[in-house]
Design a protein around this nucleic acid. Structure first.
Lengths: 182, 182
DNA sequence: AGCCGATTGTTCCTAGTAGGAATGGCCGTG
DNA sequence: CACGGCCATTCCTACTAGGAACAATCGGCT
């Protein structure tokens, strides 16, 4: 069914291309990377540049994307086959569990080894980082609004924020529990 | 400061050993794996078996763990140096952002490509999986209570549940938004 | 006693991934 | 017209995932 087994990352990129299918120009790998940084990032780690090109090559071999012949940089577009393949992948086959690597939570788990003050200061730092990233994202969303991008992009940005709020809540929750301990 | 740069995974294992330091026997790699599956898993992907042994070797070379000489399987314990090192790592140096690979959210992001029914059924499946995993974890927590393990272990299990509730909420939130769309 | 399957304990191998460095073209600005 | 910065891509290397393979041990069953 899923012909040459592609990674979820490949499908994520394919998805980005599908959302851009109105645009006859297509996207370069570089542009995809930026798009991925702004939209996928909070649900699926943004792949490294080199990784994007690797995945694009695979997608290209499988004929799920095509590059319009031009003299400039390669610009990719989804093929019809690609869209079908994405559909298939979306709703058939294993979905799998989320993978999380949460460096703050990891440290909190070892909270017994440290003073509340130490934990508190680490949390403050992290929450500041989160806030900064959130502000970034907010900026991006506003920008998208101005430029009248597809509504979808804005929605994704919203979700990004939603997730980020939740995460802060999780961290705050952990902290409370920790303080509740003697 | 951080001598031979160890991975977060290595520190996670070191942490598990610290929590077990009352036990003069130490733990085998195999036992560590099980412990990791039950406690770390929801905050830091449980490393593969082979990975655990690799990290233990590194920790051993750095003298952060020692293996009691015995004829049976290797049993590891933290050294004093190891505890100090963990302390240092916990509160100095870069913490970094969480890494998430969320296959369900990834699919939801592409929701425009599919019908609400399709999305709904995918979500049901995933939430069932979550519930199953949650039940597992609940079982583990009860078990830990019976055996009068360190209070900490129970706390970790609690956190695991807390996180899992949150995640289900996130997914539910995404779903609502999605249904709110025309 | 002998066999079988499950669990413990560890190593090995291979494909995949991260992510920084290197390269080179193009564009605007002082 | 030099310089820094962005665009675009490739390359390299170290690390990671994770399954397969290999033993040894233990318990129960016939």
């Amino acid at each position: 069914m899923v012909n040459p087994a592609l990674s979820p990352t490949a499908y994520a990129l394919l998805g980005l291309l599908v959302f851009d299918r109105e645009n006859p120009e297509g996207m370069t790998g570089y542009e995809l990377k930026q798009r991925a940084d702004f939209t996928l990032r909070y649900y699926w780690v943004s792949p490294a540049m080199s990784q994007i090109y690797t995945e694009l090559r695979k997608l290209s071999e499988a004929e799920f994307v095509e590059t319009a012949p031009s003299d400039g940089p390669a610009r990719y577009r989804v093929t019809e086959l690609g869209e079908e393949q994405l559909q298939t992948w979306l709703f058939h086959g294993e979905v799998g569990f989320p993978i999380l690597k949460h460096p703050v939570a990891l440290r909190l788990l070892m909270g017994r080894l440290s003073t509340p003050d130490q934990l508190g200061s680490m949390l403050e730092t992290h929450l500041d980082d989160l806030a900064a990233r959130r502000a970034d994202l907010q900026g991006v969303r506003d920008m998208l609004g101005d430029e009248h991008r597809v509504r979808y992009a804005a929605m994704v940005a919203d979700w990004g924020l939603a997730y980020y709020d939740s995460e802060a809540q999780i961290v705050a929750g952990l902290r409370e529990r920790l303080e509740g301990m003697d």
